[in-house]
């Protein structure tokens, strides 16, 4: 064996050793549980317990049941709405923090942006339910100026508001990170070449910050579509979403195989969103 080959072999071994903890972690906490769930989704719940039938019966049941399809549709509609709203709100907010606020106040502004993350997710949802309730804070204010009341509690609108509040902050951080990394010379150069503010934003700023927007949007999509708490508390049980349907299978029917099949479908939706995002980024580049 040549000396060069020996060095390469040692380097490869070293790389494997260094990667081993991450690989073991992924194997133990993602691949094994996911594999178990995939196998379980091919079983059936029977009167006497779980039966290894090895068929796609649970997936067929999902496709044949309009209420289940409705739950997936509800989840997708809520998630897409929240993702779009969060991006539309987060981008200007991140811009203001990165470009308009004096540098000495930026840390404070960022700290204020992440404050919602400091409270428990459940507490935050219940707080929103108090704000949006029939006799809540919002309707008190509206009543004081002769408006309302708005019937927002226990509705899809309440779920979307609760989600958007949380994810706008998440997206603000990822977009802010993209904005501050952008060299200021690029915008100056565009201005020197005669580009107006809108053209500079469209041709320079937006393309360069798009990765941050897409990463934040994907995180929003993945976290939002899998969330059980917010639709349960703010939706008031009026808008069955896929995670709630999964909990129904576990909590009411003890049907772990169907819950596993629905979880796989949920993961499939997230995977498709990721692939779509990756493909779009490739096209844009």
């Amino acid at each position: 064996m040549s000396q060069r080959a020996s060095i390469e072999t040692r380097a490869t071994r070293r790389a494997w050793w260094l990667a081993a903890p991450a690989l073991i972690w992924t194997l133990a906490f993602f691949i094994l549980p996911f594999g178990t769930m995939a196998v379980l989704s091919l079983w059936q719940r029977t009167d006497v317990g779980l039966e290894a039938t090895w068929d796609l019966g649970n997936y067929a049941n999902f496709l044949a049941n309009p209420a289940y399809i409705q739950a997936l549709t509800n989840s997708l509609e809520i998630t897409v709405t929240v993702t779009i709203l969060s991006v539309l709100l987060a981008y200007p907010l991140a811009w203001i923090i990165a470009e308009e606020i004096p540098e000495r106040f930026r840390r404070l502004a960022l700290a204020l942006a992440v404050i919602p993350f400091w409270t428990s997710y459940v507490v935050r949802s219940y707080a929103w339910s108090l704000v949006l309730a029939k006799s809540g804070v919002l309707n008190d204010w509206l009543g004081a100026v002769g408006l309302g009341p708005l019937d927002l509690a226990n509705s899809r609108a309440a779920t979307v508001i609760g989600f958007t509040h949380f994810f706008t902050m998440l997206l603000t951080l990822s977009i802010y990170a993209s904005l501050v990394q952008m060299p200021p010379n690029l915008r100056r150069a565009a201005a020197d070449l005669g580009a107006g503010a809108f053209a500079t934003f469209r041709l320079i700023v937006l393309p360069l910050t798009l990765p941050g927007v897409m990463v934040g949007a994907f995180l929003t999509f993945a976290l939002c579509i899998g969330d059980y708490v917010t639709p349960q508390i703010l939706g008031g049980g009026n808008d069955l979403a896929l995670p709630q349907l999964i909990m129904l299978q576990i909590g009411r029917r003890a049907d772990l195989p169907m819950a596993a099949a629905l979880s796989i479908i949920l993961m499939l939706a997230v995977t498709l969103a990721y692939l779509g995002m990756a493909r779009w980024m490739k096209v844009v580049r």
Binding site: A133, K134, S135, A153, N154, I233, G236, G237, N238
Partner: peptide, 19 residues
């Protein structure tokens, strides 16, 4: 006709708070 559908605690809260 329902404003909400909830489990034990949510049901109690809905009527106790006047929702």
């Amino acid at each position: 006709s329902a404003s909400s559908v909830g489990e034990v605690v949510a049901s109690q809260t809905a009527i106790a708070t006047g929702e």
